[in-house]
Amino acid sequence: MDYFAQQLINGLVLGSIYGLIAIGYTMVYGIVGMINFAHGDIFMIGGFIALITFLILVSIGLTAVPVILLLVLLVSMAITSLYGWTIERIAYRPLRHSFRLAPMLSAIGMSFVLTNFSQVAQGARVKPVPPIITGGYTLHEGADGFVVRLSNIQIIVVITTIVLLALFTWLVARTRLGRDMRACEQDQTMASLLGVDVDRTISMTFVIGAALAAVAGMMYLLYYGLVDFFMGFVAGIKAFTAAVLGGIGSLPGAMLGGLLIGLIETLWAAYFSTEYKDVAAFSILIVVLIFLPTGLLGRPEVEKV
């Protein structure tokens, strides 16, 4: 039971990270109707930028951990969202009204570019960082000596996720930008006729998605203490699975899907086999798409004849 409780905590933390990435997929898919294959790599870039910022801040002698975290968060969100903006501008905008396969291939190409870019720029080796946030709480100590722990970093990941989710739900539901985004999702032509700047709205969607991916990247760095240039691909597919599972186009759905995927993966690894945990995640993707193509919180699609 204790073991299960510990896995539950670990799964929820991992799931929060997937959920943050999944929001980027879900928003872009909702508005532009394409899978942003490069989004997983945006997450990876976010992790790298967080790492580098952290190194610089530490070596200039900053010691206050909260200040460091805040600065790292801001810098990594800012620069990563510029990556999101640039990619949309270069690789997707010229193809917006084109043949459907073209933006998809363009996105795959962009994903390769980003992966290889960080491999060339920062080297292929895994980059470890010493634990930045230590300590935690012992929740329960079992008779057999197994300890259920909730570490501070886990608390930070979950709280950050909840705060950001609340913030962006508010943004989409209440602000002018959010309304524009929902309008573009329904009908771009009509939205532009009614004075919505479609280009700008789509750009902003990519920017927001990338900013959230940057947060996920930073959380990943803090939680696992490492980044590498290849981490975007698998994390990206799992986050996409999460977005689909939750119902594509739905923000709470993406979060819910992320949590479920995180839990399933952790529990699978804990009780069955570590080797096949990715196979489990991909199989879930296939099963969900076949039996529940609209996801848990998505809108049903009716085939028009």
Binding site: S106, G109, V113, L114, N116, Q119, V120
Partner: peptide, 12 residues
């Protein structure tokens, strides 16, 4: 080492 960079860029 730039192979994928070139390939990806060419695809775009």
């Amino acid at each position: 080492q730039f192979r994928m960079l070139v390939f990806g860029g060419a695809m775009v």
